[in-house]
Amino acid sequence: MTHTLGRPDFDLIAGWIEPGHRVLDLGCGDGTLLKHLIETRGVQGWGVEIDDANILAAIRNGINVIQGNLEKGLDEFADQAFDHVVLSRTLQTVRHTEGILREMLRVGREAVVSFPNFAYWKNLRSVLDGRMPVSEDLPYQWYDSPNVRFFTLLDFEDLCAQMGLIVRERHVLDEDGNLVDRTENRDVNFLGSLAVYRLTRAR
């Protein structure tokens, strides 16, 4: 299966976003996702990045990018300023997990969150074999990983429930980027390498 820019979650995210929407991408890297959304969905986009090289790359890509630290909140952004706030493969790198989720739904109507699932069976097998997992969705060695939070799909859903966040949609992908077509939560947690959620606040 081929995916846009080699990122299967990008296609899912793009499918949730309507033309003309205002999108904020947290940890936007070089702005690849925003550029894709601007070109294919005609959105208005802004990114937040902490890293100098990514700031430069995003500006080079013609993307609006704001240098900032997600751990310190999103003070520059007004309440409900965006239709979608995206946190793509970044939640596991943020220490203030609840803080950033709350901030996303303060500045945005909907939050889109994707993250690697640590309960994916290959990751579990790795640990059983005595090694920390390294995979397509967890591409780092333990000593150079930016990840600071290690959690599973089920853990995440518990936190959402605890915080009163509503899961509007969930897509779970295996390592090849194919949708995991199971209904049992336990199976999905076992077979999914990457989870993509669409969240809102309770209305």
Partner: peptide
């Protein structure tokens, strides 16, 4: 500078912001 950035964002303007070390 961030005060300017915030005022521009609140208006949906195209803005990039770099804090140089």
């Amino acid at each position: 500078s961030k005060e300017i950035v915030a005022a521009l964002l609140a208006n949906g303007r195209n803005v990039s912001y770099a804090d140089i070390n």
